[in-house]
């Protein structure tokens, strides 16, 4: 067991390193360097003098070959030092740390709302006997994955801030300011959780043990909640892990719409200003969160589902192989109804 944990940890670190490298390569494609952009051409008379530009270039390593720069930055990154933001001149790590709490609050609440609504929709849709209700509920997730998040945000602002003055249209002021953005952010995870959960619930309800339980006289609700849900919740857990990376990324758009402070808005500003150290820091942080959450889920998965035994030979649970999620369809996925549980006939 411990060998397995250790192996997964090493894998996670390797993937994180590789993610850093990929990001570095992508951003190094940039023609020119941010120092020149920042200083403009002011160097010729009265802008920043050439010596200062040279110093800045040196500071950022732009006078070095790519490989030297890469290892220089990598060593620093290992110590948690992602360099200095070109546009604000503050250490990237402190820029990100400052911006993290509001984003965590936003994504945390967004995920919670998503789970609550997604779960409720799935349970209700699979529980109800009303065909129209089931169809209506099951079509919600399809809608949820098809709307642009920023547009949902703007519609909510329109309605709840402009027409009915219920919530503020922007800002970080307390819980009231958090509601609209969190609801906006919750649309996607809610829809996906509802899809997965509804599908697994239906599968579980069709299993012999559920049928048996019902035959033995267990109430429908009891079978639903006690038996089916317990089995159905695992795929939903997996998707929740996958969604964390997604949520952080979507915060870029949502925080922009609501003019909220946070990591997302910093990212958008950094992209606009071509502030490479910040963009790199954020992307690597996104990968870090994603990898960590999925590692944790991987590790607790066997505890939740006794059917998955951790091989003594150091092999992991069957469902995945590397530190990352076996996402896009290790194969079978595709042939299942694509994004949405088919509203109607497929269910």
């Amino acid at each position: 067991m411990w060998r397995y944990v250790l192996r997964r940890l090493v894998q996670a670190v390797v993937v994180l390193w590789a993610a850093y490298t990929v990001t570095f390569l992508v951003l190094d494609l940039l023609p020119g360097d941010p120092v020149s952009t920042l200083a403009g051409a002011g160097a010729d008379s009265q802008g920043i003098d050439p010596a200062q530009i040279a110093r800045l270039k040196h500071q950022y390593g732009f006078d070095q070959p790519v490989l030297v720069r890469y290892f220089h930055y990598l060593t620093k990154a290992l110590r948690g030092d992602f360099g200095v933001s070109v546009s604000t001149n503050r250490p990237v790590s402190s820029v990100m740390l400052d911006a993290l709490p509001p984003t965590l609050a936003l994504t945390g609440l967004g995920l919670a709302i998503g789970i609550a609504f997604g779960g409720a929709i799935a349970l209700l849709a699979t529980y109800t006997n009303q065909r129209w209700l089931r169809q209506a509920l099951l079509s919600l997730p399809s809608l949820g994955v098809s709307v642009p998040g920023f547009w949902v945000g703007l519609m909510l602002v329109q309605l709840f801030s402009f027409r009915i003055r219920l919530f503020p249209a922007f800002g970080n002021d307390g819980l009231r300011g958090l509601i609209l953005p969190a609801v906006t952010l919750a649309v996607l995870p809610g829809a996906m959780i509802a899809q997965i959960l509804a599908k697994s619930l239906l599968t579980a309800l069709a299993e012999p043990y559920a049928q048996t339980a019902q035959a033995k006289g267990a109430g429908r609700a009891r079978v639903h909640l006690r038996h089916a849900l317990r089995n159905a919740v695992l795929p939903a857990l997996t998707i929740t892990g996958v969604l964390t990376g997604q949520l952080m990324a979507n915060a870029v758009v949502i925080e922009t719409v609501f003019s909220r402070n946070g990591l997302g808005r910093i990212t958008a500003a950094a992209v606009t200003a071509q502030d490479i150290p910040v963009v790199q820091g954020v992307v690597v942080f996104g990968a870090f969160v994603f990898i960590t959450v999925n590692l944790v889920i991987d590790l607790v998965y066997p505890l939740l589902d006794p059917r998955i035994a951790v091989g003594s030979g150091g092999r992991g649970p069957s469902r995945r192989r590397s530190g990352t999620v076996d996402t896009p369809a290790g194969g079978g996925a595709l042939t299942t109804p694509a994004v949405e549980p088919a509203a109607g006939s497929a269910l």
């Binding site: 994955v145 996906m192 795929p235 995945r320 369809a329």
Partner: peptide, 13 residues
């Protein structure tokens, strides 16, 4: 990736 993720979850199942 979310779409992929659904598939992943389903594939996992």
């Amino acid at each position: 990736t979310a779409v992929g993720a659904i598939r992943a979850a389903e594939g996992a199942g």
